[in-house]
């Protein structure tokens, strides 16, 4: 299993298919912003989004969108606050803000959000 740090340093890709995203690391998702939707309820009782952590990847479904490519444009991104699996979720320094850009051939670039980006946890 790759750590988030390794994924970011190696510039590893994630994948997307329609409304499904696959991240090449295992992590809890605390908050997601897609378009104007701020999603913090990932429980099955709410339809917005749901994720599953596997051993070496994380899968997210955004149920409100059929195809993410239709809503996330060239300069836009999906923003996530994540905590890597195994790290203390209650330590705020472990909360990492990352951005996902959709590129061609179902590839998803993953970057750590810098100070220029607007993302309030």
């Amino acid at each position: 299993m790759k750590s988030l740090k390794e994924v970011l340093n190696n510039k590893d890709f994630g994948l997307f298919y329609g409304n499904r995203i696959l991240l090449p690391f295992a992590a809890e998702i605390l908050k997601a912003v897609i378009e104007r939707d701020i999603i913090m309820d990932f429980s099955t009782s709410d339809k917005g989004a749901n994720y599953t952590i596997f051993n070496d990847y994380t899968e997210i479904y955004f149920y409100d969108y059929k195809n993410l490519l239709d809503v996330v444009s060239k300069y836009e991104m999906i923003k996530l606050v994540v905590v890597e699996k195994g790290k203390n979720i209650f330590d705020l320094s472990n909360h990492k803000k990352i951005s996902l850009h959709l590129v061609e051939n179902h590839k998803l670039t993953i970057e750590e959000l810098n100070d220029d980006s607007l993302f309030i946890e």
Binding site: V33, R36, F119, I120
Partner: peptide, 10 residues
């Protein structure tokens, strides 16, 4: 409003 929501502000 729209810009703020995209920045994660409720």
């Amino acid at each position: 409003k729209s810009i703020c929501e995209r920045a994660g502000i409720n």
